[in-house]
Write a protein that binds this DNA or RNA. Structure first.
Lengths: 202, 202
DNA sequence: CCAAAGAAAGCAATTGATAACTTTCATTGG
DNA sequence: CCAATGAAAGTTATCAATTGCTTTCTTTGG
């Protein structure tokens, strides 16, 4: 099991690279991570990286794809775990926040991608993630309207935007002050307010 | 009146540099703006820039300070223009959104600053802006509680975070899809939901 | 009033640093 | 033996900042 061989397989190295980037992004500006640093962090020479990735851009794409897949699967699993639309939304909210706490480098990476004007592969991955995420939220909100947990008069689209914005607002604050505590502490209160915004008025 | 002189004063050049950076940031990744581009955009040679700024960092600091001052003064003016706390909040919300529409490069600049771990002058400017902004919001929310427009049972701090997060969520969406239309259209609906979140329940 | 001095603004070329990527050659394991 | 893996040294490009020199504006002494 414990491979004592010096040479690792290409797949192992690619997985190591993703992990290395995530760890480095947690402690420094992701935009300033160099291939030299990534290589050093995974016990490889700088040039050795290019045996497994054709370019630095391909490394980023791989990392972003891992993030999109992982976050979506966690949020989707959270959505299924609850037995009412509102509780599903709450579980999704908390799963998203928990992911940001577990991988503090990820929001920093995403914010770094935002300013780019070109449609980078990374940006496309984020946009597609946000779309799938939005569809899941739309479904839960519509279900909520059906069963009377959510007010039918509100715009579902606006509620989706508010949900995502609420999470992002918390994350931005945490990133800005470099303090994940803001996230853990603020999340329940933030969701409570979101719930007030969408609940059925009497 | 129309200065036909070839050499401009240091103050004029500094103001031109701020304008140039804002315009360039609107169409490209702010992090990739070079001193060569800034200089070219203001009709100056690359080296000429350094007659008026001691470093590229000083240029950024100057731009960020302009942004913080301008945005805060606009939001504060909007807050004063309305005659009830809720309407003040709405005016502030719209003023913030309008600013982001007028200077689309600004959010991109700010998002680009977020990933940096060091406390850059720019990041400090953003944090201080956010703090003053938060105080203004806190004041209005407390006034709203006093006059019965805002529910007393909600956390003011959480409401501030929700307000800021809502605006940021709208802006992120606009930046991600490169479409300012999202902002104009989504803003009224977004504020309507925020209002539902903080209003007094019957 | 006005020329000379010098301060300020500007350009063009250069420097030094750093990054991604390439090439060459040694080593490993099947 | 040989193909895959990796290290080390190189290549090319880019960018901020500096330097030496020229041009323009301003001030001042006679």
């Amino acid at each position: 099991m414990t491979s004592t061989s010096k040479y690792l397989s290409a797949e192992e190295r690619r997985a190591m690279a993703v992990k290395a980037v995530l760890e480095l992004a947690a402690i420094q500006n992701p935009g300033e991570i160099t291939t030299t640093e990534i290589a050093a962090h995974m016990g490889l020479s700088q040039g050795g990286i290019f045996r497994h990735f054709s370019s630095k851009d391909e490394i980023w794409r791989t990392v972003m794809e891992w993030v999109a897949t992982e976050l979506h699967s966690r949020v989707a699993r959270a959505a299924e775990s609850a037995n009412s639309p509102i509780f599903s939304l709450e579980a999704m909210f908390m799963a998203h926040v928990a992911f940001a706490i577990e991988y503090p480098g990820v929001p920093r990476m995403l914010f770094g991608e935002l300013p780019k004007t070109e449609s980078t592969p990374a940006k496309i991955a984020v946009a597609s993630l946000l779309e799938r995420y939005g569809k899941l939220l739309t479904l839960k909100l519509e279900q909520g309207k059906s069963c009377g947990e959510v007010d039918c008069s509100i715009s579902t689209e606006a509620a989706v935007a508010l949900f995502v914005g609420t999470v992002q607002g918390l994350i931005i604050k945490a990133v800005l002050f470099g303090d994940v505590g803001h996230l853990r502490q603020g999340a329940p209160e933030a969701f409570a307010l979101f719930r007030r915004a969408i609940r059925k008025s009497i």
